[in-house]
Design a protein around this nucleic acid. Structure first.
Lengths: 237, 237
DNA sequence: TGTACATCAGTGAACGCGCGTTCACTGATGTAC
DNA sequence: TGTACATCAGTGAACGCGCGTTCACTGATGTAC
């Protein structure tokens, strides 16, 4: 249900979404005037209604864009990794890297997310599959799958929120991530040797730097935030 | 910095705060019109400005009232308990009981809470003290105190959010709580025997029923939500 | 206890700005021949 | 390649409702004597 947009329309839409991201970092959508939005985006007021039916539709579009962005990012970071424990931990590491690279997107994501667990997004389905694989392989003994998934998700949320809120850099994020991985993996009942291998501070630090760095060199534009929405077509709203 | 309010003023203020709670369950404060608020509360529009300087001040007052309510509740539930591990677990159990009794307050609390960890509220200070006591007593070996506190807080948030979102009853909440306690305590590195004693499903179920039940018999009014704000004086705002 | 007065809180009409939405027009982009 | 026309998206002035805020008035509560 997506239509390819003309270059001109795509530019206008991207400018609006980007401006929306800037403003949604500060306050929720109800606190943002369309006047302010179009002024920030540098387009005419009427253009807004060429692209979105109303303000809520706009907020949904921004939320959707950000969510699919982090989903893609995590999926790419885990790449072709097949070991279930590595995938589980890799998801948390990738989420932290994303938060370091895109603190504003992360804030908006937290702001627009409604329920944490009920939603059946690809990310959550993938996590559930990985968790199930971990359990079936005997690598962890959580009291239940239904409890382990939100537990892990909550740990990811906590570490990401902490990093964004205090605005720490990659160097300080590494040890925090290591601590959280130890707490979360131990909670699942993963063996000590496995935990030590996964949560090794040096290894984590390198992996974080790798993820953050490679994204930096991949991006062509200087301002990553501005071009985030210019990738391709958008859902027809 | 609190002044005692005349009975009439207290009634009006309580009606406004209670109506605010009802409406804040549905949407954030910016989406609520003062017209709607006073209509729900059954008072004149002008009265609103007798009690609050503006809408944001009102939202703050509701948030403050709810927060101090849950703080009091948890402090009372832990009572004179001194064993640090029991206090830690007791906090999570009490939070779940509160969520079961007051799902709407819990939703509003989540909505009005800004940062999760940065704030220096009594509740967080108490948690930090308990956690430190647990570590010093050698009852747990988390990688760090700074990591353990937000980890535990995140686990409490997760279980509470899950319970409220799915609207489960006391019976189903018990097993969920047991699972989360196992995951969280194991994450901290608490000994298996201790965990088994604390997270015993039967014991937890009884404790939950006790907390929920005693609150029910304590309350005089039928509608607990309506009288929640009528207790005493409010901060002068 | 009763009366007169002061204060305090409630009331709702009135105001006017802000903001969401519309629309007639313009210019740009694309297409047919 | 050039010209004429159609479509598509941008523009910003205009509109008008909604909503935050004010205020003069009323009635209730409290106090003095």
């Amino acid at each position: 249900l997506t239509v390819p947009l003309s270059p001109r329309a795509a530019r206008t839409r991207a400018a609006l979404l980007s401006a929306g991201l800037d403003l949604l970092v500060e306050r929720p959508v109800d606190g943002i005037a369309i006047d302010e939005l179009v002024a920030t985006a540098g387009v005419a007021k009427g253009s807004f209604f060429n692209h979105f039916i109303d303000k809520q539709g706009f907020a949904d579009a921004v939320g959707h864009a950000v969510r699919s962005e982090i989903e893609t990012w995590i999926a790419r970071a885990n790449g072709s990794e097949t070991r279930p424990l590595a995938r589980l931990a890799g998801g948390m590491v990738a989420a932290v890297a994303f938060a370091l690279l895109n603190p504003r997107q992360t804030i908006v994501l937290a702001r627009t997310a409604r329920g944490m667990t009920l939603e059946d997004h690809p990310l959550n389905r993938q996590l559930r599959d990985d968790m199930q694989a971990v359990i079936e392989a005997g690598l962890a003994q959580p009291p239940s799958l239904a409890g382990a998934v939100p537990f892990w998700l909550g740990c990811c949320n906590t570490i990401v929120a902490n990093i964004v809120e205090r605005g720490v850099g990659t160097e300080q994020a590494g040890p925090m991530l290591a601590d959280m991985l130890i707490l979360a993996l131990r909670g699942l009942g993963v063996e000590s040797a496995e935990i030590a291998a996964i949560a090794d501070p040096n290894l984590l630090q390198r992996r974080l730097a790798q993820l953050v760095g490679q994204a930096g060199t991949e991006a062509v534009a200087q301002d990553g935030a501005t071009c985030l929405f210019e990738d391709d077509a958008f859902p027809d709203g």
